[in-house]
């Protein structure tokens, strides 16, 4: 089972999480206003379903929050 880094924390993926879209579903974030960077590159929303996750991937998942 692949180990990846999400927002700076290591996580081991369960077997059925084989794509970025599946991970988003697992995290309860499907349909939420988020943006994702994988290994330093933006993954457009349209590519979530066919972006595989592999050992050592580093993801940043962000939202908009209050700020000045």
């Amino acid at each position: 089972m692949p180990c990846i880094r999400i927002n700076g924390e290591d996580r081991t993926l369960s077997g059925h999480v084989d794509s970025l879209a599946a991970l988003i579903a697992e995290l309860g974030l499907t349909g939420k206003r988020i943006a994702i960077e994988r290994n330093g590159e933006i993954v457009p929303r349209s590519q979530h379903a066919n972006t595989p996750l592999t050992e050592g991937d580093a993801l940043e998942i962000v939202v908009a929050v209050g700020g000045g």
């Binding site: 927002n7 974030l29 939420k32 206003r33 940043e60 908009a64 929050v65 209050g66």
Partner: peptide
């Protein structure tokens, strides 16, 4: 203005989001 931050993975994903309170047709983000 809005800030961009890592999503809090421990948090309930159904909590309200700032963007829900900013009507898109009224404000330029």
């Amino acid at each position: 203005t809005v800030a961009i931050r890592r999503v809090n993975l421990g948090q309930n994903p159904n909590e309200p989001n700032l963007l829900d309170f900013l009507p898109k047709n009224r404000y330029t983000l």
